[in-house]
Each structure stands twice: as C-alpha cells, then as structure tokens.
Design a protein around this nucleic acid. Structure first.
Length: 562
DNA sequence: AGTTTCGGCGCC
DNA sequence: AAAGGGCGCCGAAACT
C-alpha cells in the first residue's frame, strides 16, 4: 500500500506537509514543520512524496543525506499532460496550472537559467515559483483527473510516475558525479596533443599538423577556419562545398590526411581539453547536470560539460575508485526492439524475443545474411531515410515486417498532416512550429520521389519539404521516444534494485548506464541490470515476447568496456 | 563590445 | 548527385 504525502517548502524556511488519501485528495490537515529534511526523515513510511518540483526540493534533501523512494513532480506532470492534451507551449508552472483552474490570468514561465561551470547549482530550474500547499493540492487533484482522460490513462500515469523517478535518479547522479581521473586525462591530452605553449595557443601537435596542411597547400592555411580551407582547395583546383569529414575524406590531395587528423584533435582540444578539465572536474568527479526529459522525445540532456558526448578516446579518464568497479551496461539494438514492442509486428517480435543479435536475425530473414544491409534498412525505416541503399532495402523490410514499417509510416503521415503523435506511454510530439497552412507555398515542387516505385506502402507524396521534415521527425519520435519511456522504467527499477547497496548510478546515456560499486557488488549489479531491463519491458509494453538484453562489462576504466 | 547564428563534430 | 532522427559545445562569423 503506498503511503502518499504532499510537501511544500514555506517562505520562512519551514515546510508544509499533508497526508493524501488513495484518491489523491487530502486525508488530513496541513501541518507546518520547521525543517524540510526532518519532515521527510521522520516519516519513513511515506513511499511517495508529491511536490511541485524535484529540482527545488530533492537536492536539499540529498544534501542532508535523505533519499526518498518515489515522488510525483507536479510541474513535470503538468508539462506531460499539457503536451498530451495538444496544448504544447502553454505555461507549465504550478502557478499557471492553478490560474487555469481558477480562471485567473495565467503567468508566463520564468526564463531558464544557463549552467555555469563548477557552480553547485540545482540540476535544473523549476518552471515556476513557490506555491502554498493547499493550492498545490488543488492542482494535483486536477491532474489526477486529467490522467483519467488520457488516451491510455494507465500508461499516462506510468509516464508521469516514471519521469518523476527519472528526476530522482538525475538528482542523485548530479550529486554523485562520474568518477574522473584528472591525472589520466592530462596524460591523455599530452599524449594526443603534445605540450601546451604559454599564451594559450594551439598545443604542439596541432601546430605541427597546421604546418603540414599549409605545406601541402603551398601557402598559410588555418585548418580551423572552414572558409579558409574551402578557398585553399579551390585554388588547388578542387571544389568542395564544405569541409565536413565525409566530403573531404574522398578528396585526393596531400592536405587531406593532416587536415582530418587536425580536425579530430582540434575537437578534443576545444571540447575536452585542459580548460574543460578545469571547468568541469572537481574532487575526482565530472558533474554534468543531468536533466531528465530535457528533449521532446524524452531523452535526457546534460547541461554543461557535454556530458552525453564524451569522446571514446577520453573515456580512458573515467576510472573507478580504488577497490571499486564500473559496471558498464549497454542495451543491445534497443530501437528495433522497441519498434517490435510498439508495433506488435509478429515477425519482428519473434526476432526481438531472442537475446541474440537482432540485426543478424533480420538479415537472415530478409537480406540473405547481410547484416550491414539489414541494420541500414532498420535504421533507415526509423529515421525516415528518403534515398540511397537504405531506401531500397526498406522494401525488403516492408515485405517481411509489414506491421513494423506500417507503424512508423503511419506516424510519419500523422506528423505530415499535423496530427498528434505519441510515444507508447503517451509523451506527445509538439506540433509544427507554424502549425497550419503550409501546403500552398511549395506548390511548384512536384514531390513524389521516383525511387519509391514498386513499393506497396505509403510513400512521401505531394508534401512540402517542411511537412516531410515533420514526417521524419514524427517517424523517429515514436521509436526514440518510446525507447526513452522504457529507459525511464529501467532506471526506476534499477534504482530500487540498488537501494540497499553501496552501488550508485553515475551515468546514463539513452541506452547505456554506468554503476559505480564496490568490486564485491559488481556481479549483483549486473544481475540487477538484467532483471530491471526485463521488468521495464513488461511494465512499459505489457505482454510481449520482446526481450531487452544488455551487454555488460565490469571494469576499472570506462574505456575498457566493449 | 556584447549577443546570436553558423559550421563542424562529439555522442546515441 | 542526392543524405536521416535527437541532442550539446566550441570558436568564428555575423549581427546589433
């Protein structure tokens, strides 16, 4: 039996608390207490705390060593509910929700604040300001009612609960940080980039490569200036439209090799070099502020430090504490497995019902064993590829897995037509920026791609480029977003499984988690991840044969995983 | 001089 | 010849 209480910090530093009944309505009087952490700590029987904003409350609790089992974040739920109701963009603060309820003027959300390196800031800015507990409870009761009216009320309740759980995880990860060896990082930088020169200019290796590029062109060229490089190629008789890797790669010129090497190392230097280390690593931890549900698809983002873009080569610096290990776990072929679960395509569910390599299974059935072709076809279907080999292979995919392809096709059509598109649990895709009339403006474009001939399914027809882009977005949204739904449930389950252990979740990146734990706990953590993935699959998608296997590695250094 | 956009690339 | 979803970050370029 869940024991629910609501809580609201008071202006004077105290806190108001109130018990809630099973219906979500107050089951007793509001009580004023002097100390937030004390109010929570003295009620260990409470299994879910209802509050306005996890970001407002939970870091303060964690700072005093208090964790909570579950919570319900009213402002996050408001965001999800508004989206589900097709009211994307309306102010999502609790104060705004209250105003809508009472019929008063709706206050706009205050602007968000940017992250500052190294600052002990909250994980993210709450949407609005403090609200008295009785008002908060009115909003909460109304939200319970709105869940009831959702397309799938049970799923919607699961979604808001899961994202609230994600916010607890995010706050705890922000507090723990990712173990990071500045010493290893510095050694790595020196090895890759060479010595730094006084004055903050390019390190030795970059200067050398810039010289090589210049020598190859026969004049001084700055490789970090795209315009300069394009001009230099033009003078050498080679036309390039940009200096992107994929375009430069196939050019036959002696400057290409040092240029590509320069760009690779330059990237390390500017994005993960010495100043990054200075800004973002403190006391042996990298603390990117994780923000659960920071994107429209429900994927997380980090605020500061590029926490979800750690280059593979830099992962050498992620090192467990002495006697501890990193359990690095990566979901295998997550997106096609999610597509199987949401489309209920019999053939795809069958191959996704095994732990073995899904792309290999798909290729055995539809691509005469060519795994790469199968992978490209699946990803092309999910991303909305409109040309190239992926499109050709899509026809084969459609023959073998018609329901799966039809599912993303239907999402694309809905997106093009401006209809609402939802993830499995009910997160809803925002409408087009200028939703409405956009059909006439591109009337000169015939549309109807030639490459689609001979295919039986829906093809992107006489739609504007803008509308096709929305179609691709919607197509990807249902898969990427439903994968994010599942990942939230995974994190929630894993957090509970690790509750009584020393192990801590320290990193999450879409389909990958890292747990930092004492060496002797590592095997238990691996089991916990496997169990949590299976549980998340059942909770999210219901009764399907789809499995969600993980590749796990118990290592001392992140770079040693896979 | 300060702020916004762009190009390019890192991750999934 | 063509290229496909989601993000963040940085310096340079373009803007006010």
């Amino acid at each position: 039996m869940t024991d629910r209480w609501a809580l609201a910090p008071a202006e004077d530093g105290g806190v108001d608390v109130a018990p809630l009944g099973p219906d979500g309505l107050p089951a007793g009087p509001v009580r004023r207490e002097s100390d937030l952490a004390g109010a929570v700590r003295s009620r260990p029987e409470v299994t879910r705390w209802v509050w306005r904003s996890t970001a407002e409350v939970y870091p303060r609790l964690l700072a005093t060593g208090v964790r909570v089992e579950r919570c319900y974040d009213i402002e996050d739920a408001e965001t999800l509910l508004l989206g589900h109701e097709g009211r994307y963009g309306e102010p999502r603060s609790a104060a705004a929700a209250l105003a809508r309820l009472r019929g008063g003027p709706v206050p706009p959300d205050p602007p968000q604040r940017a992250a500052e390196p190294g600052a002990q800031s909250p994980l993210f800015e709450p949407a609005g300001d403090h609200l008295p507990l009785p008002d908060l409870l009115a909003v909460y009761a109304e939200q319970q009612h709105r869940h009831q009216k959702a397309a799938h009320p049970d799923r919607m309740r699961l979604l808001t609960a899961a994202e609230s759980a994600g916010m607890l995880v995010a706050a705890e990860m922000n507090r723990s940080g990712l173990p990071w060896s500045a010493e290893v990082h510095r050694a790595l930088l020196h090895e890759l980039l060479g010595e730094r020169y006084a004055g903050g200019g390019e390190p030795r290796r970059l200067a050398e490569l810039a010289d090589e590029v210049s020598a190859a062109f026969g004049r001084r060229v700055r490789p970090d200036l795209p315009a300069d490089v394009v001009k230099a190629f033009a003078q050498a008789g080679i036309k390039v439209k940009s200096t992107r890797r994929w375009e430069i790669r196939s050019v036959d010129h002696p400057a290409v090799a040092p240029l590509l090497e320069y760009k690779k190392l330059y990237r390390i230097w500017v994005a993960h070099g010495w100043s990054w280390l200075q800004d973002w690593v403190r006391d042996g931890r990298f603390r990117p502020e994780f923000l659960a549900g920071g994107t429209v698809t429900g994927r997380w983002v980090t605020n500061g430090g590029g926490g979800l873009q750690i280059p593979k080569v830099i992962r050498r610096a992620v090192v467990a504490d002495p006697g501890w290990r990193l359990v690095v776990a990566d979901a295998d072929q997550m997106e096609p497995r999610v597509l199987a679960a949401i489309s209920r395509d019999p053939g795809l569910m069958e191959v996704a019902g095994r732990d073995s390599d899904l792309y290999q299974s798909v290729s055995d059935r539809a691509f005469s064993g060519d795994r790469e072709q199968a992978k490209l076809a699946v990803l092309g279907a999910v991303y909305g590829q409109t040309s190239g080999d992926g499109l050709k292979n899509l026809a084969a995919l459609r023959r073998r897995f018609p329901k799966a392809v039809a599912y993303v096709d239907e999402a694309a059509r809905a997106g093009e037509e401006g209809r609402l598109v939802r993830t499995w649990l009910g997160r809803t895709c925002p409408p087009a920026a200028g939703s409405g009339e956009d059909t006439a403006e591109e009337a000169g474009i015939p549309g109807g791609e030639e490459e689609n001939e001979g295919q039986s399914g829906w093809v992107p027809g006489y739609a504007s480029a803008d509308s096709r882009a929305r179609g691709r977005f919607a197509r990807n949204f249902v898969v990427q977003g439903s994968a994010a739904d599942w990942a939230l449930l995974l994190l929630a389950a894993l957090r509970r499984a690790l509750w009584d252990m020393a192990a801590e979740l320290v990193f999450f990146q879409h389909d990958e988690v890292i747990v930092h734990c004492p060496a002797e706990e590592a095997e238990a953590v691996v089991r916990a991840i496997r169990d949590s993935a299976a549980l998340a699959g059942r909770l999210t998608f219901g009764d399907t044969p789809v499995r969600f296997p993980f590749t796990t590695a118990v290592v001392e250094c992140y770079a040693d995983a896979k």
